[in-house]
Amino acid sequence: MQTDTAPLHVTLVIGSNRHGRFGPVVADWLLDRLRDRDDLVPAVVDVADVQLPTTFARTEEAAAALSSVTPELASADAFVVLTPEYNHSFPAALKNLIDWHFTEWQAKPVALVSYGGISGGLRAVEHLRQVFAELHAVTVRDTVSFHNAGGSFTDGRLKDPSGPEAAAKVMLDQLVWWGNTLREGRASRPYGG
């Protein structure tokens, strides 16, 4: 079997839509890490820009609302999901985006990046691992988390980038390995989950 050496299409999902959210600061930092790599081609889905239906009725209106984000998720080889922690879990807007899609996540890797207070969003990450397992997605082992995130950045730049930079490299290396492996698997035989 010939190996596909094309860069992976990775979609960064920004998982909060709250007014005044800190997510775009972390997302900009993440996008720089993604763009620095020759093996990744990034795209962004921001839940603040996605008008998801508020009911799970499969209507024409719901289909129209989903049409823009569904191709972006479907065409991705891999995902990086950025989440804050709200009430020991991840935001409702992110859950809504995840729940409106199923096959788009299947047999694809998901890297998780979190931010928050003292926990750094790690409880949200653990909940997301359970959700993505149910959707037949593979979460990579290593994550990047920002504890007391607001104090970690000044004017959009990390005060001490050494730890997060190293963590991001490990996480993205794992994402690329899983992304290539699963892309080859999906190409050689359809996923039957």
Rank of each mutant, 00 (worst) to 15 (best):
L97E: 06
D77S: 08
T55G: 03
A133T: 14
A57K: 11
E60H: 10
S68K: 12
N96T: 15
T103Y: 13
V41F: 01
V125Y: 02
P53K: 10
H101I: 01
L34H: 07
V125I: 15
A92D: 03
A64E: 14
V113F: 02
E61F: 08
R21W: 06
A137C: 08
D28V: 07
F132P: 01
S68I: 08
W100C: 00
L73H: 04
G117A: 10
H101Y: 02
H136W: 09
L94M: 07
V44N: 03
P71L: 11
F22T: 03
R58I: 15
G117Q: 05
F79Q: 06
T54H: 13
T59L: 07
P24E: 08
A124N: 02
A63L: 12
D36A: 15
D39P: 01
V125S: 00
R35S: 02
P84E: 04
W105F: 12
N96F: 00
L52A: 12
T54N: 10
L122G: 00
A74M: 09
F102T: 11
Q51A: 13
A48C: 05
G20E: 07
Y115F: 15
T59F: 04
D46N: 11
V81L: 13
S68V: 14
T59S: 14
P109W: 07
Q106N: 10
D36E: 15
S89T: 15
T59M: 06
K108T: 05
V125E: 02
E72K: 15
F132D: 02
I118R: 14
P84D: 08
D99P: 07
G120A: 02
G116M: 10
F56M: 12
V25F: 06
A63V: 12
W105V: 05
A124P: 02
V80W: 04
V131W: 02
S89H: 08
V131I: 15
G120P: 09
L112H: 07
F90Y: 15
T103H: 13
V26T: 01
A43N: 11
L31C: 06
V26P: 08
H127N: 14
D99E: 12
H88F: 15
L66H: 05
A27V: 06
Y86R: 11
R21N: 01
A78D: 00
D32V: 12
L82T: 07
L112I: 11
R58F: 10
G116K: 04
P53C: 02
D46E: 04
K95E: 07
A92S: 14
V131S: 02
N96M: 12
L128W: 08
L122P: 00
P42M: 04
L122T: 15
P109G: 07
A76G: 05
V131G: 02
E60W: 04
V44T: 15
P53H: 08
D46P: 03
L112V: 05
S114D: 06
D32S: 12
G20D: 04
D49T: 13
L34A: 04
E72W: 01
A107K: 09
R37N: 02
Q106V: 14
A133S: 13
F132L: 08
A111V: 09
W29G: 00
V69H: 05
Q106C: 10
P91E: 03
A78L: 08
D38S: 14
P24K: 06
Y86W: 15
W29P: 08
R58N: 09
A133Y: 12
S67Y: 04
K108M: 07
V138N: 01
V80P: 01
N87K: 12
P71C: 05
R33M: 06
D46G: 03
A124H: 05
P109I: 10
F79D: 06
V113H: 01
T70S: 11
